[in-house]
C-alpha cells in the first residue's frame, strides 16, 4: 500500500535526465524559485541576534557585526513567555486529540453508514468550512460571555476542535473512508463485530495516513490562531504565542523589533525542526490520506 514518494521512479519522464544541461536547468530553476520561500525565515532567525539599531540598517544585512542573545532573554523577562509557550502547546494538543476523535467518527458515518438525511446533514456540516471567522466572532464572543467563558481557554478549544478546522478534518476522513475497500468491513461483520467494533478495530487503524494528515493540519491551525485569542483572552498568563508576539512593545507602544523577532524565531523553529524530521512521513500522510476531492 505504502510507497515512498521520493523513491518512486519518475513516471512523467523516464530517462529524461540524460543531458547534464537539463539537470542544471532544473536545479537552477528550483533554487531561484526556493529563494522567496526560504530567505524570509532565515532572515528572521539571523536578525533576532542583531542589536535593535542594526535591524533597520540599510541596505539590510544577513549577519550582525555584534551578535547578541539579549533579545532572547528579554522575551522571557518581559512577559510570561514560557507559560504562553505551554498554553499554545497544550491547547493545540487537546484540540488535535478532540478533532481526531470527532472527525474520525463523523467522517466514517458520512462515508459508510446509511441514515435518512445523510447528504443534507453533510452539507450542513460543510457549511461550517465556508463561514469566515469574521462572521461568527462577534456573536460567539457574546455567547461565551453569557456562558462565563471569556478569558478562559474554552472558546479556543471548543470552536477550533468542533467548528471550521474540524469540518475540514471530517471531510478528509470521509474521503478516506469512502475509498477504503468495503470487503474489509464485510469480513469483520462476519466475525461478529458491530459498527463501533468495525470502526475502532478495522477502520481507524487503516486510517493512520489520513489521521496523521488531520493531526498535522489541525495542530497548525490551532498553533497559528490569531484573531480568536486576541478577542477572548486578556490575561498575559493565558495568552497563546501568536498573540504574545504582538505584545512586545515598549511602554509607549513602540515595537521592540528584536525581541519580537527573537520570540517569533522561538515559535517557528521548533515547529520547523519537527517538520524537517517528520517531513517525509508528513508528505506521505497527505499523499495517502485519500484527499482526492
Amino acid at each position: 500500500m505504502r510507497t515512498d514518494l521520493a523513491a518512486r521512479p519518475a513516471p512523467a519522464a523516464p530517462g529524461r535526465f540524460g543531458p547534464v544541461a537539463r539537470r542544471v536547468a532544473l536545479y537552477t530553476a528550483l533554487i531561484v524559485l526556493a529563494a522567496p520561500f526560504v530567505i524570509p525565515t532565515l532572515w528572521m532567525i539571523t536578525s533576532s541576534f542583531k542589536p535593535l539599531n542594526e535591524i533597520f540598517a540599510s541596505p539590510p544585512s544577513f549577519f550582525s557585526d555584534a551578535p547578541t542573545t539579549a533579545a532572547y532573554a528579554e522575551a522571557f523577562s518581559f512577559q510570561p513567555f514560557a507559560r504562553q509557550y505551554f498554553n499554545s502547546v497544550y491547547i493545540a494538543l487537546v484540540v488535535t486529540a478532540i478533532t481526531l476523535l470527532v472527525s474520525a467518527l463523523a467522517g466514517y458515518a458520512f462515508a459508510r453508514i446509511r441514515f435518512p438525511g445523510r447528504n443534507l446533514l453533510f452539507i450542513v456540516v460543510l457549511v461550517g468550512l465556508l463561514v469566515p471567522s469574521e462572521v461568527t466572532i462577534v456573536p460567539l464572543f457574546q455567547m461565551f460571555k453569557q456562558a462565563g467563558l471569556v478569558n478562559t481557554h474554552w472558546p479556543l478549544i471548543l470552536v477550533t476542535a468542533l467548528a471550521a478546522p474540524c469540518v475540514l478534518a471530517t471531510f478528509i476522513m470521509r474521503q478516506f473512508f469512502i475509498a477504503l475497500p468495503v470487503e474489509l468491513e464485510e469480513a469483520a461483520r462476519l466475525d461478529g463485530l458491530g459498527r463501533f467494533g468495525i470502526w475502532w478495530r478495522i477502520c481507524v487503524p487503516l486510517a493512520k495516513p489520513a489521521l496523521s494528515a488531520v493531526a498535522i493540519l489541525t495542530f497548525l491551525a490551532s498553533w497559528n490562531l490569531y484573531l480568536e485569542p486576541t478577542v477572548y483572552l486578556t490575561s498575559p498568563e493565558l495568552f497563546t504565542l501568536p498573540q504574545a508576539l504582538t505584545r512586545f512593545t515598549d511602554p509607549y507602544g513602540g515595537e521592540m523589533w528584536n525581541t519580537q523577532l527573537a520570540a517569533a524565531t522561538m515559535t517557528v523553529v521548533p515547529v520547523l525542526v519537527v517538520f524537517l524530521i517528520a517531513q517525509r512521513h508528513f508528505v506521505e500522510s497527505l499523499a495517502h490520506s485519500g484527499l482526492k476531492g
Binding site: L101, L105, Q146, A147, G148, L162, F196
Partner: peptide
C-alpha cells in the same frame, strides 16, 4: 469506545452549561 464517544458528546454541552450561572 462508546464511553469515549459519550464523553466527547458531553464535553460541548457540559462546558457551555457550566458557565451559565452568570
Amino acid at each position: 469506545t462508546a464511553k469515549k464517544l459519550v464523553s466527547a458528546l458531553a464535553l460541548g454541552t457540559v462546558a457551555v452549561a457550566a458557565g451559565c450561572g452568570g
